[in-house]
Amino acid sequence: MTKAPKAAALLAWLLAGLASPAFAAAAESAPAVVELESPLWAAPPLQGLLRQPASAQPAPAVVLLHACNGNWRGLDERWGKRIASWGYVTLTVDSFGPRGIRTACGSVAVDMGTDAYRALAWLARQPSVDPARVAVVGFSLGASLALTAVERGAIERASARKFRAAAAFYPPCLAFKDNMTVPVLVLVGERDDWTLANECRNMVEGRDDYGISRHRGDGVPMRLIVYPDAWHAFDAPQLQTPVNYLGHRLQFNQAAADQASEALREFLSETIGERAGAP
């Protein structure tokens, strides 16, 4: 692969985020850009893309958190549209734009620890949302934030509102040592050389680098799905041609993307959707 096609593929991943036909299921309405807070409350205020299904009743909702490339519009097109077509309100958060950040894939440090709960607080005020049924779904860096939001700790305890579930696509699992407070679904590729599947296995099984386990039964169980032939960003259709980014391989995998979509749909149905609370 020559440098020019590689650069074009990488640019497509960072900026375009266009959906493939596999992700073409659409909600009825186009997304609306919303400001989550008044500048008097928070500096800078967050913004996001909101999608609402056609429903007369308050609906469950999903907060979507983007990866380190900051492509929130691409994430909304790829996943917000699809999840809204399942009957959920979706809010795809832009954590970078209001902060003047283009990317955090290198050594940029960004304090986004409370962004998920800022989005949850905004959703809870919307009449179209059932505030007792909100999940958070994140991707790579956003997956880390999603897990942080529901791990037992200071950030989770500080919020009056709580998430009911969390899903993490290819998260960096090494840092999570405490118990989860809600059901968690983790999806990662076996061949991922950026966020390692074995580290996620250790997290889910309660082991750390020293072989010490958390007390089993203290937290809510996590479910891990590992896709055997998949790399990092396996759900991003603009990566049909693999790229090397910061020394890591990024590549779309149709089978893994389809299976992950079904797994997420089932998980949301069981935790916040039509099957939530069913015996």
Rank of each mutant, 00 (worst) to 15 (best):
R51G: 15
V243R: 08
C173H: 00
D229C: 01
M203P: 07
Q238C: 06
A59V: 13
P31G: 14
R157F: 02
E262W: 04
P21C: 14
G153V: 12
L187E: 12
N69V: 15
I212P: 01
E35S: 13
R118P: 05
G80T: 09
D130C: 03
R73Y: 09
F23G: 05
L185K: 08
S213C: 14
Q251W: 00
T271W: 00
V108M: 02
V186G: 02
A276D: 08
L46S: 02
S20E: 08
L187N: 10
L185I: 02
Y245M: 15
R207S: 07
K6V: 12
N71C: 07
G87A: 05
L141S: 12
A255K: 15
M1E: 01
P172W: 10
W122A: 00
G211V: 05
V150N: 10
L91W: 09
V182I: 06
D130W: 03
P98R: 05
D208P: 11
V110Q: 06
L196K: 15
A256S: 12
I83Q: 10
T92E: 02
A256F: 03
A146Y: 10
L36E: 03
L10V: 11
V110C: 03
S55L: 05
S140I: 09
R125G: 06
L36K: 11
N198L: 12
E274N: 12
R118Q: 12
E205N: 13
W86R: 05
L147M: 14
G206I: 08
L10C: 03
G277V: 06
T271K: 06
D76L: 13
W194K: 15
L10I: 13
V182H: 12
T241F: 01
S29I: 00
Q251V: 01
W13M: 08
A160Q: 15
N202G: 14
T2A: 07
E77C: 00
A54D: 14
A149Y: 11
G211M: 05
I212F: 03
T103C: 10
R157W: 04
R191P: 01
L49P: 10
W194S: 15
D76P: 14
G113H: 13
V136W: 08
A132M: 06
M222I: 07
S85I: 01
S20C: 10
V33C: 01
A116H: 09
L10N: 04
S38P: 00
K81L: 00
P131D: 06
K3Y: 07
R152C: 00
S128L: 02
P172S: 13
G113C: 02
W41K: 14
C200T: 05
A121S: 05
L145E: 03
A42I: 02
D209R: 11
L239S: 01
V93W: 08
C68V: 09
R102S: 03
A168G: 09
V184R: 03
Y117V: 10
H232P: 01
E35L: 11
G113P: 01
A59E: 13
R201W: 07
P31K: 10
R102G: 02
P237N: 06
K3F: 12
E270S: 11
A19L: 03
G113M: 09
Q254H: 07
L187C: 11
E270Y: 00
L174H: 11
T103A: 14
L46K: 04
P39S: 10
S261M: 13
Q240W: 07
V134K: 09
P228L: 01
S107R: 15
L36G: 10
E199H: 12
T103Y: 12
F267D: 00
L14D: 02
E274Q: 15
A276W: 09
Q251F: 00
G87Q: 07
D192F: 02
Y245S: 14
